[in-house]
Amino acid sequence: MSGKKMHVEAHRDDEGAKLGMWLFIFTELLLFGGLFLVYSVFRAKYPTNFHEGSLELSVTIGAINTVALLFSSMTIAMALSAIQKNNPKLSMLLIAVTLLMACVFLFNKYIEWGVKFEHGLYPGSGLMSRLDHGDLLFFSLYFFMTGLHALHIIVGIVLLAICFFKIKNGSLHSQKYVHLENGALYWHLVDLIWIFLFPLLYLIA
């Protein structure tokens, strides 16, 4: 074993890591793709209930959240450029702004869900079970889709927070930034899914 390297630590392949992330993003898109399929089936079956249901949602909050996420996608892309240009301070600031926007999004979501919960409108509630079939399916899909998306936001926050601390302790720098690149890719995915969810649930009426 003399002079033998540990084979795992010696391995570094940024291209491979990025390819892996893109493949993972495919699977995430297909995961939500299944939900979009279910949405379109039931939308075709209950068009009027879906119309009335979407009028119940607050377009204002949805729009604020859309802007917040789009803005955060921009800042995370800038954070990546900053680290590539060897400016860790700026990069950390931009990641912090991204995380702030993510929290704004989650806070709005909390307000939005909170109001519905107050009215007794949540999965498994007594009110839900008395609704029309179409309304029940619309709100079930609403909670399921936005809930799963919010879960992805939380995962994204964790990933980006890890990148933040990696920059801070110097293990992520201008020569080695694939973690941040992948984190940013994931964040764009989360953003992209919201870009579909927002019109499908809030706008198309």
Binding site: V38, F42, K45, Y46, P123, G124, M128, S129, D132, H133, G134, L136, L137, S140, F144
Partner: peptide, 11 residues
């Protein structure tokens, strides 16, 4: 949660 995506009784 008794959502009913796949249950005809719930639409």
């Amino acid at each position: 949660f008794g959502i009913g995506f796949f249950n005809p009784d719930l639409g």
